[in-house]
Design a protein around this nucleic acid. Structure first.
Lengths: 345, 345
DNA sequence: TCATAAATTGTGTTCGAACACAGTAATGCG
DNA sequence: CGCATTACTGTGTTCGAACACAATTTATGA
């Protein structure tokens, strides 16, 4: 129960605290038999250093580089800033300095340029959204060679050793399927990919796979699952054609945060009987959720992703904790009745 | 940007660190003009004491009394222990000592007895589940007179000033209604209260109110909402009668964690077409969720409730943080596809 | 005026880990 | 043997806040 200090161990071993310290940090210059004895004692009483005292002495400032898409260009990322601030205030006792860089999520060159700018601030660790697979891969390799630990979220770059926070996208597609299946009439199901100009193809593919796997498992031969890919600028027309060509559609799954586009069309075309499931608590989506046109939203929790990613990095810096390789957040199902508490900062 | 220390302020004010310290802690014995000057300086540079250094000196051990129902008697409470351990390991750097007491959730006398035993350990703060309204009220009043801060969760004792962590039960009932409404065929809805011998009447009433309010809002005159109260020991017979007497029931809402009892009956009576929504991720419930007899579970997250309650108390002790009066957790909707990550410790 | 009390201010130590540096003992080598 | 070198060990200081206590200044009264 009692908390042992270095002094206690020194007393027990009959040596000075300096020697104990040398043993703990493997700093050498200790006689073999003494080292053995001290190590055994440390083991026996399961010595845990007082992290408070350690951090009082190590009064150096840690610099963290954060690289995320600009919320002014895509509102989805706005809540990440909140998550970062949460982690920051949680560790306000420590000297952690954050430099945030916002890149244009439609521009790979800007992504690379921001990485360069960030490197100039000599960060001890980096938290980033590796939005572009190819560019991110090379950037991450570079950081690895510089021995800068990196945390990533939202997009997983499997080739990298960087830590990753996100969700199981395949499972997320299955959840959408289960929800639509449980609330829809018999009929066709549509998966709608609305491309946002930038590469989240992997995201959408995984979700589609999961969605289809659920319907495969169900052996619902009478219903078919259709897929519709739409470029951002042609959403309305193409979607209208798609719905007219497939009059038996009873449910739509939008694989990203743009479900509100579909909702708008369903309302204007008087097809609100079609059930709609999408992603993310953007205010546009939440409005359609409350009006009933969107039935469920799946919450990808970017706020929590950013928070956790940063927390792991800070704990690595100040407590020498191991950074977990991967952490998959639980997937929240949101409807009009439980949405409110998820919106608060 | 720079972090100022007491020494810095002393230097700037042309006094000694002792004087600055006296000003900060209003310990008197400072000339008025000097006090003014130092206070102004502190204000100007927005002095924030280094919490690490403060806690190094304050090396006293904090004792926390925890009082929760015995998980051996009701499995619902088992995950609370995990939550407590999480909070504990998060603050392992500080000398926080926890004494946990488990009371019989069917026995008010045991609750009172455990409170007495706990008081003998002279706790600095207390975290408890105030399961019995009357007894808890008097106990909380006693702690207030002893100036022992108390955190409560699961049950709110409105008359008390103790902090409370929980969920909005009324809203939780509305969520159940929304879910059942979206997945059920037209027909009657049943609210089933399975009494567990001990008093959670307030819980169940609030949930019922919320449930009904949703159906009232919907103006669903054709469907009626029935209520069925069942004593624990007569569950099966009474429920069977109830279902036989009301053949048009299409959905059942069980207001506590005992939905598995209803699920078992639905299976044995071949009435699995009836949709079922209940509470809590007990393994019995999860099994029926996976088999499809239970459609949704609402997650009350007792683990998180315990974790947060304890976290607030510890932060109060070690960082002098204000304990928030009330915190309502978001309400998680669980189906068979997203349940897994919620089950991990 | 001077002793004494009261008011005010400064100094030094503590907490535990980390590390610089001084000190002691053992060994090597001419 | 004597001096240097290596091998090992102990001491002292630092981080920032907190507080005990010493020191100093000012006020009071005989």
């Amino acid at each position: 129960m009692k908390k042992y200090t270095i002094k206690d161990i020194a007393l027990l071993a009959g040596v000075s605290k300096g020697t104990v310290d040398r043993v703990i940090h493997n700093r050498g210059n200790v006689a073999k038999d003494v080292e053995e004895k001290v190590k055994q004692l440390l083991e026996e009483i399961n010595y845990q250093p007082n992290l408070i005292a350690r951090n009082l002495k190590n009064n150096k400032v840690f610099y963290i580089g954060v690289l995320i898409p600009d919320p002014k260009i895509d509102a989805y990322w706005a809540v990440c800033i909140d998550g970062i601030n949460s982690a920051l205030s949680e560790f306000s006792a420590f000297d952690v300095q954050i430099n945030t860089f916002l890149f244009d999520p439609t521009d790979t060159d800007d992504f690379l340029a921001c990485n360069d700018t960030m490197l100039k601030t000599a960060p001890d660790v980096i938290l980033m959204v590796p939005l572009f697979y190819k560019e991110a891969t090379s950037v991450l390799k570079h950081y690895e060679s510089l021995n800068i630990p990196v945390g990533t979220f939202n997009n997983q770059i499997i080739s990298s050793s960087a830590n990753f926070i996100g969700q199981d996208l395949y499972q997320s597609g299955r959840i959408a399927a289960k929800l639509l299946h449980s609330i829809s009439n018999k009929g066709d199901m549509a998966i709608v990919h609305i491309d946002e100009k930038y590469k989240n193809a992997v995201h959408m593919q995984e979700k589609e796979k999961g969605f289809k796997s659920y319907y495969d498992d169900m052996d619902l031969f009478e219903d078919s699952v259709l897929t519709c890919k739409i470029k951002y600028f042609e959403t309305e027309d193409k979607l209208r054609d798609f719905l007219n060509n497939h009059p038996h559609i009873e449910g739509i799954f939008v694989t990203n945060s743009k479900a509100f586009h579909v909702a708008r069309l369903l309302e204007s075309e008087n097809k609100t009987h079609i059930k709609l499931v999408g992603y993310d608590l953007l205010s546009d989506n939440v409005n359609y959720l409350n009006s009933g046109t969107i039935d469920f939203l799946i919450h990808q929790n970017p706020r929590q992703q950013a928070y956790l990613g940063l927390k792991y990095l800070i704990e690595y810096l100040v407590f020498d904790k191991q950074i977990p390789e991967k952490f998959l957040l639980p997937i929240d199902i949101i409807n009009s009745e439980n949405v409110t508490p998820f919106l608060r900062p």
